[in-house]
Amino acid sequence: MDHPRRNFLQKLVASAAVVPLLSPYRALAQADRASTGSHQGKTLRVALMGLGSYAARVAEAMQSCKRAKVAGLISGTPSKLQEWGTKFGVPEKNRYDYENFDRIKNDPDIDAVYIITPNALHRDQAIRVAKAGKHVICEKPMAVNAKEGQDMVDACADAGVKLLVGYRMHFEPKTLEVIRMRKAGDFGSISFFQGLCGFRIGDPDQWRLNKALAGGGSLMDIGIYAINGARYMVGEDPVWVTAQQTKTDPVKFKEGVDETIQFQLGFPSGAVASCLSTYQMNHLDRFFMTGEQGFAELQPATGYGPIEGRTHKGELTQPHAMHQTIQMDEMAGILLDGNTPVVPVDGEEGLKDLKIIDAIYAACGTGRKQELRLG
């Protein structure tokens, strides 16, 4: 990374509010750890890249993991490397900055790097991690467009490492129960899905409202949950999309940064989806799906939890656990044991969502239906 971008990122990351590390998450983590007991098998040793608020949540959650641990840190802020290294027991030799992290190639204490930086940085950082011979875990969206996503998939394949995407909902118990019921035929033929995802975003100067770093606006941050959720709830990949964009505040949401997008998806079976992505409305976190024999509703559907839901058979009662704890333990099984998750979390899965995002933006720009070929 060149100096200007490194310095810019340092300022961005330094300005991000870090989740207090002596928080309820720590208490939950300790309770979870006490209840889960010991584990068998190798532990996945993960370096966290980008020490902002979400990385803090991941780091806290990993304290109760049975098969994954924080083993390295990568940041452009020396004070954070010191603070986090002390709190999470990461020795100084396993702390890196954005210029020297290629040296992880010779670090036997790190198996994988979890990239939790602004979207536009994912591609280059993932390629560097892959060239260093480490597995890549990347926050969603995997990149800012499908072309960059394909570059990441190719780089990891060329390096012989795996690429996973931080789809925490793919491991969430109530979500998996709805998927199990759908596969079992409990809902009959699926006809309709609705995904509502949004909130009123705050600080107008944050990187999520900077197209150069975010790649867009609400769709790249919160709308991807509806895109991905439509796919795993319906159980198919869409074949077309239409979309409409609304912008009420062009000062806050500048050119290329979407405020509100409505989009519709069509599936091979004939099922359809109607979704909303917004940075201008609160109380939007709901999935609803109906079929010829029943329905499922999750509300909240994608928040940090607990997820709540019901179907035509009654309330969903699966216990809540920290999503990132489950995610990282399951990803350890994928990377170390070759396990296959119920819903994929690999680079190809991330690439499909990027192709849909590209098509949604194209539909907003042209007003025309976009055909999708995700296979």
Rank of each mutant, 00 (worst) to 15 (best):
I261K: 01
H312G: 09
A301C: 11
L265I: 08
S79Y: 05
M62Q: 03
Q244I: 10
V234K: 02
G367V: 09
E172L: 07
R128D: 00
S15A: 15
S218A: 15
P20V: 14
K42L: 08
L265H: 00
T340M: 05
V234I: 15
P300T: 09
H3C: 05
K134W: 07
L121V: 13
Q10C: 07
S23A: 10
F263N: 01
G195A: 11
G133R: 03
G229I: 01
Q324T: 12
L276E: 00
I137R: 02
V178H: 04
N106I: 06
V178A: 08
P118N: 13
H170S: 12
F288H: 13
P250A: 08
G256P: 05
N106L: 13
C364L: 09
R231Y: 13
E371H: 13
V161Q: 02
D2P: 02
L336C: 10
P173Y: 03
S23N: 11
G160D: 11
G266N: 04
Q40F: 09
V161L: 04
D285K: 05
M233K: 02
H323G: 06
P344E: 03
V343Q: 12
R182V: 04
S23W: 10
P250Y: 07
N94V: 05
I224S: 00
L28M: 15
G52T: 00
K140C: 05
G50V: 01
P4R: 06
D237T: 15
D111W: 03
D109M: 12
Y54Q: 11
G294I: 14
L213W: 12
A27P: 02
A27G: 10
K66A: 12
A243D: 03
S38M: 10
Q293L: 15
L163F: 07
F295P: 03
E349L: 06
Q40G: 11
P238H: 05
F267K: 02
R182S: 03
R180M: 11
K355H: 06
W240D: 05
A226I: 06
T260C: 08
Y232R: 05
G52D: 00
N210L: 09
G198R: 01
V113E: 02
K11P: 01
A159E: 04
Y279T: 01
G314A: 07
R368H: 11
G37L: 14
D111K: 03
D237A: 13
R67A: 08
A47G: 08
T242Q: 09
F171H: 02
G347F: 02
S277M: 15
S274Q: 14
V46H: 02
M152W: 02
G291M: 09
I115M: 13
R123N: 13
Q40T: 14
G375I: 07
A362T: 10
V234W: 04
D154Y: 06
L22N: 13
K11F: 09
I116F: 15
A61N: 10
N119H: 15
H39N: 06
T242N: 12
K369L: 10
G50T: 02
D151R: 06
R33Y: 09
G223H: 00
A362N: 04
K66C: 07
S218C: 14
R5V: 05
M142V: 10
Y54R: 11
D111M: 08
E177G: 09
V70N: 00
G303S: 15
F295L: 07
E315G: 03
L176W: 06
R45Q: 14
D205I: 04
K252R: 15
